[in-house]
């Protein structure tokens, strides 16, 4: 039972992680390191920081985020990420779906007898 629970959690995390990333970018553009540390703040969201980078790469390829290089005060230029219009739309869409799903699951799982 434990094994399948772990697998389920991993799957849920993987499926939702990209929307957490998109959401972090909703208000401002951020660079990779900053994003990664921002995600790590929330317990249970990220097991290994390095795995965010393949995700970012994929989001870029899918056109949900775009990146630009900007000079950094400390050292080499940084790659900054920001949402595209498609990214914004995807995030909005997910928000609606997530609320519905979360409420549905809560309805059963969060029942108090």
């Amino acid at each position: 039972m434990v094994a399948t629970q772990d697998a389920l959690l991993a799957q849920m995390r993987r499926g939702t992680l990209q929307y957490c990333v998109l959401s972090l970018l909703a208000d401002e553009e951020r660079y990779g390191f900053d994003l990664v540390r921002g995600l790590a703040v929330s317990d249970g969201m990220v097991t290994s920081e390095g795995t965010i980078y393949p995700l970012l790469s994929r989001l870029r390829r899918d056109g949900l985020v775009e990146s630009t290089w900007q000079e950094s005060p400390t050292g080499p230029p940084r790659r900054y990420y920001r949402l595209t219009d498609a990214g914004r739309a995807a995030l909005e869409g997910f928000r609606l779906e997530w609320r519905r799903f979360r409420d549905a699951v809560d309805h059963f799982v969060e029942r108090t007898t």
Binding site: G32, F33, Y53, S57, P76, R78, R79
Partner: peptide
């Protein structure tokens, strides 16, 4: 990217 992350 990961190299930059480490540098940061």
């Amino acid at each position: 990217e990961i190299s930059e992350h480490i540098a940061e």
